[in-house]
Structures are given as structure tokens and as C-alpha cells.
Amino acid sequence: MRKVKDGPSAEALALDPTSRGAKSRRMWRRLRDNHPFLIMIFPAVLVVFLFNYLPIYGVLIAFQDFMPGDQIIGPYTHWIGFEHFKRFFTDVQFWPLMKNTFLLCIIGFVIGFPLPIIIALMLNAMKSKKAGKVLQTIFNGPHFISLVVLVGMLTLFFGRYGLVNNIAASLGGERYSYFLESKAFRPMYILSSNWQDFGWSAIIYIAALSNVDPGQHEAAILDGASRFQRVIHVDLPAIMPMISVMLIMSIGGLMGVGYEKVLLMMTDGNLEVSEIIATYVYKQGLTGVPNQGYATAIGLFNSIINVVLLIIANTTSKKFSENSLW
């Protein structure tokens, strides 16, 4: 039996609930009692740790003159401090990249954030629940189209010899190169993204709306509220906590637009508006003469902006409402 040296006796530990031993025993008892749940959650925690947390140490190459094959931490690691960051901030591409990324994200957000909410409220307010379910299924369909197929569809519709141009031409109009014109890039990107995702994003709001007490609607009917007034005064406040959480998460990912679809839609003609941080990182890190340290630094900078935005959004939400992520 282990002796407790120079400390309180085992009896004293057992009697004192605040003692380390007592706390440790309580912890082990809790672990033992909850072990089925811990077993259930373990695979998810392992995956998150292996694929989200463990690779974080790779950001160290943002501070190194890194070549493929080099060790991230080793005797030959060449640390250069914030040189990559200085280079990026002084790069002639910096402000165009920031502008393009910001505009693409903010316009997409302004259109794309309220749209699922409006759709969810509309579907919920429909008299015919059957029709609502059918519409919901139709709205969800585009979510399952892959990005490559989606851009392929855009090409078929909006390419120089696509459907829209063929119709225009048959009516005597001129063919317009949607993919080569800078003006057309943002609308095509944003509207196609919203078309693809609004139905899927509405699901979470539809689920929240299904929990609204029907008695509140009946009370509103008796109070004299129209259908629209019930949506505004009953449904919308009921899903406000969900909207707050989704808003915080959306703001946190505001500058994190992915490169895949942009890259697929990118052409020499729209490069001045389609080159964003994510595509620049991709090109710098994986094409041509790759400079992975520089690409990592840019990516890290982008992530830091997102984290800062997330913290600001969460703090603001906490201050002005009861809803926040943490």
C-alpha cells in the first residue's frame, strides 16, 4: 500500500473533500461511471486530434525558409522569423487579394446568410405541409452536385456557346463571354453558390422552427396576427438563438472562402477579380516553383483574420444578446 509521505494521512484525505486525493478519486469515479460515453466520443476526438490539431505544428514552416523534404524541426531548419509575412504585406498582390477575397466573401454573406432563413420561414409558413416537403427536397437537391459538375453546368449555360448565349444569338443579340469578363465572375460565383447551398443551409432553421410551440401561433392568431406577422413575431424570435450562432460561425469563416470553385472558374479574363488569398496560396505552395513556407504564412495570416473576426463576433453577440458560442 502506498504511503503518504510528509502529508496528511489517508484517513484525513478521505475526510477532506477538497484534498487532491479526494478530487482524484472523484475524477476516476466519474470516468468509470461515464466510460460508455467516453468510448463513444473517443473516435471523433481521435480524428479531430489527428487531422485538425496534430497538423497545426506544420504552421511553423511559415517562419522558415522551407523546401520540400526539409525537416520542420531539425538541425538544418532555417528560421527566418516574419520574413514571409513582410514579403506578403509588401507584395503588389496584397491589396488586390484582400479586396477580391473580402468582396467575394462579404457579398456572398450578405446574400447567402439571410436566404436560408427566409426560405425556412416560408416553408414553415406554408399551409400545405406536403407541398413544403416537396419544395424542401427540390431545394436540397443542388447541394449534392459536386463543384466540378456545377462549374461544368455553368459552362454549359453561360459559356460562349452555351444555352444563354445561343438563345441571345437566336434573338439577334451578341454572344457574351461570361467566363472571360471580370464583371460576370462575382455574380456567377455568388449566385451559383447560393443556389447550391441555400436549401441545405435552411435545414437547420427548419429544424429549429419545428420546435416552436404551436400554442404561440394559435395565441397570435387569436390576437389578430396575419400569417406574415406570425412569422415576424413568433417564428423569427424563436430561431434567433440559432441565427446568432450561425452568424458568429459565418463571420468567423468570412475570409475563408475555398479555392476549389474559384480555381475552376478562373480564366485569364477574370483573373483581376478571381485571384483570392486561397488561390494565391494554392499557386504559391503547389504550382510552379513551390514556396511552401510563403504559402503557409499567407494561409496562417488568413486564419488569424478569421479567428479575430470570430472572437469579435462572439464577444459582440454575448454583449448584446444572450447567445454566443462560448
Binding site: 410551440d213 400554442g215 395565441a219 397570435a220 387569436l222 389578430g224 424570435p237
Partner: peptide, 19 residues
């Protein structure tokens, strides 16, 4: 319509607007 019947109702679940 219910709103035009000049009636009011008290519900079992109160049905108060929480916000």
C-alpha cells in the same frame, strides 16, 4: 376568422411569447 370573433383564449401551456 378567430380575430374577428371578439374572443380571447387562455391556453394550458400559457403560450406566452418568450422574447
Amino acid at each position: 376568422a378567430p380575430k374577428d370573433r371578439d374572443i380571447a383564449m387562455v391556453f394550458q401551456s400559457y403560450a406566452l411569447y418568450p422574447h
